[in-house]
Design a protein around this nucleic acid. Sequence first.
DNA 1: CTCCTTTGTTTCATAATACGAAACTAAATT
DNA 2: AATTTAGTTTCGTATTATGAAACAAAGGAG
Lengths: 283, 283
Amino acid sequence: MEQKNPIQVAGRLFGVLEFLADAGSAGLMEVSVALDLNKTTAHRVLNSLIYMGYARQNAVSGRYEPTFKVVDIANRIMGRVDIVQTVRPYLRKLMEATGETVHFVERDGNDAVYIDKVESMSNGIQMVSRIGSRIPLYCSGVGKAMAAEMDDWEIEEIWNNSKILRLTPHTITDRNDFKRELEEIRKRGYALDDEENESGVRCIACSLREPLGSARHAFSISAPVSRMDNGRLRELAASVLKVREEITRKLRASVAGPETVRKEMRYMHEQHEHREKCRLDAR
Amino acid sequence: MEQKNPIQVAGRLFGVLEFLADAGSAGLMEVSVALDLNKTTAHRVLNSLIYMGYARQNAVSGRYEPTFKVVDIANRIMGRVDIVQTVRPYLRKLMEATGETVHFVERDGNDAVYIDKVESMSNGIQMVSRIGSRIPLYCSGVGKAMAAEMDDWEIEEIWNNSKILRLTPHTITDRNDFKRELEEIRKRGYALDDEENESGVRCIACSLREPLGSARHAFSISAPVSRMDNGRLRELAASVLKVREEITRKLRASVAGPETVRKEMRYMHEQHEHREKCRLDAR
DNA sequence: CTCCTTTGTTTCATAATACGAAACTAAATT
DNA sequence: AATTTAGTTTCGTATTATGAAACAAAGGAG
């Protein structure tokens, strides 16, 4: 039993907020039933969210819906993640060169978290992924790419603490197969996800060589198998490795060199925040 | 006096979360002081956020920091906003044609909320804006573009309920000047923001003609004055109006036509969510 | 090295707060 | 007109969040 929430309402507040985010909109009773809350409690929680500006009640339908306030907070958080700003131009170039959607992730425990995504517009069929959502390391291209850079004990730890599930017929569920696969990745320099996580989707992924610390980020190209035969894969592998080199060079330069640029941007941002604050205070 | 929050801790929970989002990371005492909370209360609130996965305590520094969970929620919310998906390709094209950053907003009361942004990469100097953040209608290009489409009584209401501030020497602070300006916009078909909101920044903006309802969305091109002399402005005006027409046509088509496409995508998304749920339940 | 300051964590009695049953209103539905 | 359902308000009560105080642990100063 994992000890309970030190603040009971907290779970209810965020539960309702998440529910609204998923549902798009909901009536009081829907919320009440879905989260198993007393009608009155649901009502109070919703009003609290409204009071704080995280939800609103649609004037015509009377239904409750989320506002964009969480979106604002989310972007304040993302704004601080410098690596995204640094790497994005390269990922964009990669997307343009290949015409496929490119993802960028950061390691967090036994998962990878999507922190950026450059979508190809040309293709009708879009990959379904979301910034901020998670994917296990053991069964994803990006995950394996990062794991390949780690010490053996860390790999063991990841494997042991992951709930190994056969998500598709191709998912690797054997520890030794996994280790052999990582060995393979080390040789090649890039990782593959051959429908191991989602049927019909192939990925080619590769980790970043960062100046400090080991394997915290990776990027990938994902596409339906129909566009990812072995020939195409070889083609993409070349692009991926080239971009990896470019990013590596850039990151090395950033550490030694013009950190001032980053600081300047931070300053501009601070100035902007300041003006916004003034505006609010003036109410 | 605006009645108080029906759930006291709620304000504290979200207050702390927002603080962490802005600060990047913070110690217990920083939080305690900044939000005027008892040390113990701050501690409890932080632990509750950690318990729910919205914050974590850095293993080495011991400092508290936000996780990407809000980011995930934010993107679940944004994923439901169909208009963004529909319009983005056009905005991207506009960005590529002009080389300038393009913004897309939705009206919310007396403000506009940024709901999309296509950044130009080529230019070193980036505009500072954030998806989910707000800007008053009365002093922004996008705001005026939408206001120009409204009935007189609604314009009055917006003006009366806005806190009119002289943000820069160019800000319009007189009701009649404002109305004359809107008249001008109606004639031209697009709006200008000539350093009215932020010194040194000019915008050209224009609202969307949507099949149902009036003036809920607008887009704009923003750039430093140095890149936005009157000649350039005329050039951009042509592009902006052209894109507006393209979007209008597309929106009209979407209503009558292939709504199925949208439904299909929604279906794919639902499938994906389902798989994720299974994964979590399996724990 | 010791003392002192600062920060983070835990405990606990108490006051305040969130809780939910019930009553009530207003729409929909039959 | 009668019945059901959703949403809102009230209020006594039990639970829960609260904060003072004690404690632990990690720097900093002398």
